[in-house]
Design a protein around this nucleic acid. Structure first.
Lengths: 134, 134
DNA sequence: AGTGTAATGTTATAATATTACATTTTGCAT
DNA sequence: ATGCAAAATGTAATATTATAACATTACACT
């Protein structure tokens, strides 16, 4: 079986490429402006590519910022769930890969008779660099 | 010292009232349509009231849905952090008040040399009612 | 080659949120 | 009580984020 990323279409590859080469999360319209020279002209083309990339787990959305980030973890199982550390000072984002989050959240949900499927977690604070400066 | 909610202005009270009487989270423009008869005419008036209500902890924003919900916990200390269970079937939302979340997330953050300040957690799944139906 | 599914292209528009600026109200120190 | 500063308000315009609708094309599979 081929890797999902090998099956990507032209638009999907283009969008993923921009994200992978960015050191920061990007907004959809920023992506659009960056790749208009490559034949992508409309927001919808970007959003469609993003939808697909998110679906296969290559990209995650940071909900509170309406921005998108390429996943750096080979075979990231966070197809749907995401966990981020977001620096309030410099906006840098780190993905948490603690797989124990799953079991912890399942338990929290169970207490409320709730059937856990997935989660989005955003921890806001100061990253290592910014801690030192302040 | 008076309760923060006693100091609310007219617009703020109006917006909080709609949210408190709603069984579900509401979107900003839905709030607007609901209260236009009460003299609130522009989106900005709603957003300003929401900002203030969020600041004092009476309202929380559900980031992934762009919707807002009144906090039912008297003296909720979640002024900034939020933790929700969101039903993917019926869209109902329950707020988690597990205060141990704080210490758990602090530890997770520390492992990455990250200084925890606050968090947003959204757990998506099936609520008790919808579990039974499926 | 034919067929069905997914992806694409394009235009328009919906939904969410903020800027800018003039004005009014309110808390409160004098 | 009065005058100042901070907060809140009103209004219009606009920015930002995201989707609807519909016609067309590419591609894997038989």
């Amino acid at each position: 079986m081929a890797l999902a990323s090998e099956n990507l279409t032209k638009n999907q590859k283009t969008v993923l490429n921009v994200l992978e080469n960015s050191s920061e999360p990007m907004k959809a319209y920023t992506i659009l402006y960056d790749i208009q020279k490559k034949g992508i002209k409309s927001p919808l083309q970007v959003y469609r590519a993003l939808d697909k990339l998110i679906e296969i787990g290559k990209v995650h959305k940071i909900e509170s910022r309406n921005s998108y980030v390429a996943c750096k973890h080979e075979g990231c199982n966070a197809k749907t769930s995401t966990s981020f550390l977001i620096c309030e000072n410099c906006d840098s984002v780190t993905e948490l890969i603690g797989n124990n989050l799953f079991s912890y959240f399942s338990k929290q949900a169970e207490k409320n008779n709730f059937n856990y499927k997935k989660h989005n977690l955003e921890i806001i604070g100061l990253c290592e660099n910014c801690k030192l400066k302040n």
